[in-house]
């Protein structure tokens, strides 16, 4: 049993320290939207997003200790003692961002993880309050397991947690329609433009731009889609919620999973409802991202037949989700 190497400095609660900045920027964005008409706010939508963020903080108080304890438990079995050096910190930044990419991608591709993540996408608006519309069930849904391999490799748990917080804070400002493209930064960084695509439900944009801080992972793994000006973005989820009630928002997908699994006719169906793509159904009657994209590609508004999107290489792997597990 090895205790993890302690950080050489006291790490502040980065997210909590960022909250006053979040509030200030939200008010500034509201003023900009009011003055320019660029972007959209509605107080009831913002209220539900903000109360979801508040509930997320409550969940962290209640369950955060469990997550941190898991990191420290795994750290006992680490392969290497990487310690706290600048080189290790730099490697940890990239490794954490890569893990975030896969966590995020799987959160869209597997219903178990989607049940927590869907909350973040459930607003039909896209502004800085949307950034704070966060899950209440992430820890219960075991989202943190994606980061455990980093600790097992030997990155100090506190370092991994620190970069998770930095990533979360970074991702706040990209939830806005008030900022257009950012020149050369668009090549490397996740930006408002890239993240608008991620929150869009237009078929051409589904399953794209999963990046946390660096967009390079999407470029590398074939999930990058640029924003185009010739189609107005629609935000939200395919099956839009009909409520601003935070409790309904927080638990609706879990309730849907429960309903489907308890009505499943076989273990295979139950497995599909739990871990298949969101929208999976035994008879294929429900909509998945893959089926929506396939319909779009085949339709009159789809890409030209020879384009990467038409060939299924753009954002969704060919055949993905066609039959479920």
């Amino acid at each position: 049993m090895k205790a993890p190497i302690a950080p050489p400095f006291e790490i502040p609660d980065i997210v909590t320290y960022a909250v006053p900045g979040f509030i200030l920027l939200i008010v500034v964005e509201m003023l900009v939207v009011r003055a320019t008409g660029r972007g959209r706010y509605q107080f009831a939508d913002s209220a539900s997003s903000l109360w979801m963020g508040f509930g997320n903080q409550v969940a962290k108080v209640l369950l955060g200790g469990f997550v941190v304890a898991s990191y420290f438990w795994v750290a006992q079995f680490r392969l290497f003692d990487l310690g706290w050096t600048w080189q290790v910190a730099a490697a940890c930044f990239f490794a954490e961002d890569l893990v975030y990419y896969w966590f995020h991608r799987i959160s869209h591709e597997r219903r178990w993880f989607w049940a927590s993540h869907v909350i973040h996408h459930s607003s039909q608006h896209y502004n800085l309050t949307t950034a704070l519309r966060q899950t209440w069930t992430g820890a219960l849904g075991l989202a943190f397991i994606f980061w455990l391999p980093l600790v097992w490799l030997g990155f100090p748990p506190a370092m991994v947690l620190m970069f998770q917080s930095i990533s979360l804070v970074y991702q706040f400002w990209i939830h806005t329609e008030t900022i257009d493209r950012l020149g050369p930064l668009e090549w490397v960084m996740n930006t408002p433009s890239h993240h608008r695509v991620h929150h869009a439900i237009n078929p051409r944009y589904l399953d794209a731009n999963y990046a946390g801080v660096l967009i390079v992972w999407d470029r590398l793994f074939g999930t990058f889609v640029p924003e185009t000006k010739d189609e107005k973005i629609r935000y939200g989820i395919i099956t839009q919620l009909g409520t601003f009630n935070p409790f309904r928002i927080a638990f609706h997908e879990w309730a849907g999973i429960w309903r489907d699994v308890t009505h499943a006719k076989s273990p295979r169906e139950a497995w599909g409802f739990l871990f298949g793509p969101p929208g999976w159904s035994p008879d294929g009657s429900r909509k998945t991202s893959a089926s929506l994209k396939a319909a779009w590609r085949a339709g009159p508004h789809g890409p030209p037949a020879s384009s990467p999107a038409a060939l299924g290489r753009s954002k969704t792997r060919a055949g993905e989700g066609a039959g479920g597990p």
Binding site: V19, I26, M30, L31, Y41, Q42, F43, S46, G53, F54
Partner: peptide
């Protein structure tokens, strides 16, 4: 300290919602 942070956050939420209403984002 957790309770203080949560209380401050709740006040922050109310302030932001109030700001949204005051700025006229009340279209229905």
């Amino acid at each position: 300290s957790d309770l203080l942070v949560l209380a401050a956050s709740a006040l922050g939420v109310l302030a932001m919602v109030g700001a949204a209403m005051a700025l006229g984002f009340r279209t229905r």
